Simulated scan of single mutants.
Amino acid sequence: MTISAEPATIERACGPSGELVLRRAGAHYEIISNGVFLMDTRNGESERLLVQAAVAGLAPPVSLLIGGLGVGFSLAEAAALPGAGDITVVEIEPAVIGWHATHLRAFSAAALDDPRVRVVTADLLDHLRGTTRRHDAICLDIDNGPDWTVTPANAGLYGDDGLDLLAARLTGRGVLAVWSANAAPAFQERLRARFAEVEARPVPVPRGEPDVVYLARTPHR
């Protein structure tokens, strides 16, 4: 009988959202935020789909904004796309960015070294308020989605004001893609109030209910 080893703590850090812990479990890593499991490196299917679906059908070059670096699956996918132009990644936690120079580098495929990639250390709402730049695709992977925010302040992204701001930062052909750990019907209705086209794509996971990627196109101006 094989007994799985308990995850080992690799690093602890205190950041804007509280305590972050990076743990290693076998070949994989886990990030814990204030004692709550946030993400791991075991399965990035839905994070990759987030980016694939956002840029599908858009003529290159595509300007992308990724909200949340996480373990790097979304960034790695974006950097691998032949039609990707500039890629801006907004991540609030300096420790997470630092881990991509060491422990998590393989999972983001060293994309932080790509000259097309710019990493901004900031809260995403603050970043959006401080710029007028528009992107062809905005991909959000913040916390565990609209209905399950480990950091309470992140709920503002998924509310009325946050969605208005996100819609204003899209180009005319732009797509907003939002990752969620569960179906979020109320959030989907808020999207419908702001976008002409809204789609929910379930992504099966090994255990539990599917992840969901929400796609919203053609903002109402």
Rank of each mutant, 00 (worst) to 15 (best):
V119Y: 07
A54C: 03
D123S: 04
N144R: 11
D40H: 11
P82T: 05
M39D: 08
A8D: 02
Y29N: 09
I142P: 09
L20G: 10
L112D: 08
D147I: 09
P60N: 05
E93K: 06
P16V: 07
A109K: 06
P60I: 00
L20N: 15
Y29E: 07
E11F: 03
W99G: 07
G98M: 06
D86C: 08
A80F: 10
A56E: 04
A122Q: 05
T41Y: 14
I92F: 00
G15K: 00
D136Y: 00
A122L: 08
G35R: 12
S17L: 05
L112C: 11
G98K: 03
L112F: 08
S46Y: 01
H103I: 01
G26C: 08
G98C: 03
V150D: 04
A106Q: 11
I92L: 04
R105F: 02
A25S: 15
T121A: 12
V62N: 14
L58N: 02
T131A: 13
E11Y: 02
V89N: 13
L22F: 03
A106F: 14
I92A: 06
T132P: 07
P115Y: 10
A111R: 09
A80P: 12
L81H: 07
G26P: 07
A111E: 05
T9P: 00
S33R: 04
A25Q: 08
A84D: 10
E93S: 09
F37P: 14
D40L: 12
R12C: 03
E11S: 10
E11A: 13
E93G: 01
V120R: 14
T88V: 12
R133G: 06
N34K: 09
A25H: 11
A59D: 03
D136S: 00
T121Y: 01
R118P: 10
A109P: 03
I66T: 13
T102A: 11
L112R: 14
I31M: 14
H28Y: 13
P152Y: 11
A110R: 15
T102Q: 11
I92S: 01
F37N: 13
A155D: 02
S74L: 03
R129H: 06
S108V: 09
I87M: 13
P115M: 10
E19G: 00
E30G: 04
D126T: 08
I32G: 11
G67V: 11
E30T: 08
R23A: 03
T131D: 14
W148S: 15
G145D: 15
L20Q: 10
C14V: 06
I31L: 15
V117H: 06
V21D: 01
L38F: 11
R48A: 04
V21M: 05
N154D: 06
L81A: 05
V119P: 04
P152F: 10
C139W: 02
R42Y: 09
D136G: 01
I92K: 01
G83K: 03
P82E: 06
T41V: 12
G57Y: 00
A111T: 12
D147C: 12
T132R: 15
I138T: 14
L128Q: 08
H127T: 11
R105C: 09
F73N: 12
L64S: 09
A84S: 14
S17M: 04
T149E: 07
T121L: 09
A153I: 09
G68Q: 14
T151H: 02
V96C: 07
I142L: 15
L124Q: 00
D136P: 01
N34A: 10
G68I: 12
